[in-house]
Computed example of a mutant assay.
Amino acid sequence: MKKLQKGFSLVELLVVVAIIGVLAGVGIVGYQSYTDSAKSRVGIANFNSVKRFTETELTLLNNNIQTVSGALSAAATASSCTTGLSPFTIYSSDMEDFVRGLTCYFATDGYGNAFKNPFDAGGGHQVVFSGAPASMKKGNINVRFFAGANQTTNGAEVPVSSLVAAGGSSGYFLIEYYTADGAAGAGSTGEYKAKAFQLK
C-alpha cells in the first residue's frame, strides 16, 4: 500500500508569504524611522557641542582669562584647515580668521574634533564656514556672520549698533543648524534655534 506524502497546500503557502511580506514592510518602515531619528539626534548633539565649545572659548577670551586660545587656531586661508593656521590671539586676528578657525576645529581635515554630517552618505563636513544658506544641506551647522546690526536670523539676535564686520577684531557671529536643504531653524525655536556669539 502506497503511503501518501503530506505537504503544504498552495493556499497555505500563499498565506505564509503574505504574512512575511506584511512583517517585512512594517519592519522596513520602522527601521527607516529609527535611522532618521538617530541621524537627527546625532546632528543636534553635534550642534549643541559646537555651541558649548564656542561659549567656553569666548568666556576665556572675553574675560581676559587667556589672551591666546588654548584650543583654537586662527585660519588665514579658506582652502584648507591644515595650512595657514596660527594660535589665535585676541586683537591680533580679525573675526573672519577666528570664525574660520572655529569651523576648522570641527572639520574632517581639521585639527580638533571632526564632525561628519550624519545625513551625508559621502561623509562631508557637518560644520561649514560662512556658507550661503541656499547651498546648505540638511544637518549642516553653518558658522557665519549677520548681514547687519539690529537683526534677527533664525531666532538669534544681534543688538543695535553692534559690530558684525568680518574684518574687525571683535563683533558678532552666529551658529545655525539646517533641518532641511537650504532651510535653517525649523521655525527658529527650541533645539534648532540659532545662537549669536560675541567676540569682544
Rank of each mutant, 00 (worst) to 15 (best):
K3V: 14
L4T: 12
V11L: 13
E12H: 11
V15G: 08
V15R: 06
A18S: 04
A18T: 05
I19L: 05
V22F: 07
L23S: 11
I28E: 00
V29G: 03
G30Y: 04
Y31K: 00
Y34W: 15
K39E: 14
V42C: 09
K51G: 07
R52K: 08
T54P: 02
E55L: 09
L58E: 10
T59L: 01
L60Y: 09
L61N: 00
N64F: 09
I65N: 13
V68M: 12
S69H: 08
G70A: 12
L72P: 05
A74H: 05
A75S: 14
S80D: 09
S80L: 05
G84H: 03
P87N: 06
F88W: 10
T89E: 02
T89W: 00
T89R: 02
Y91M: 13
D97S: 13
F98G: 11
F98H: 06
T103I: 10
C104T: 08
Y105E: 05
D109G: 10
G110L: 00
D120E: 08
V127D: 11
V127Y: 00
F129D: 11
S130G: 09
S130E: 04
G131L: 01
P133R: 03
P133Y: 14
F146P: 07
Q151Y: 06
T152N: 09
T153I: 05
A156Y: 02
V158D: 03
L163W: 08
V164E: 01
A165H: 06
G167L: 08
G168F: 08
S169P: 10
I175A: 00
Y178R: 03
T179S: 06
S188H: 03
Y192S: 13
A194P: 10
Q198E: 14
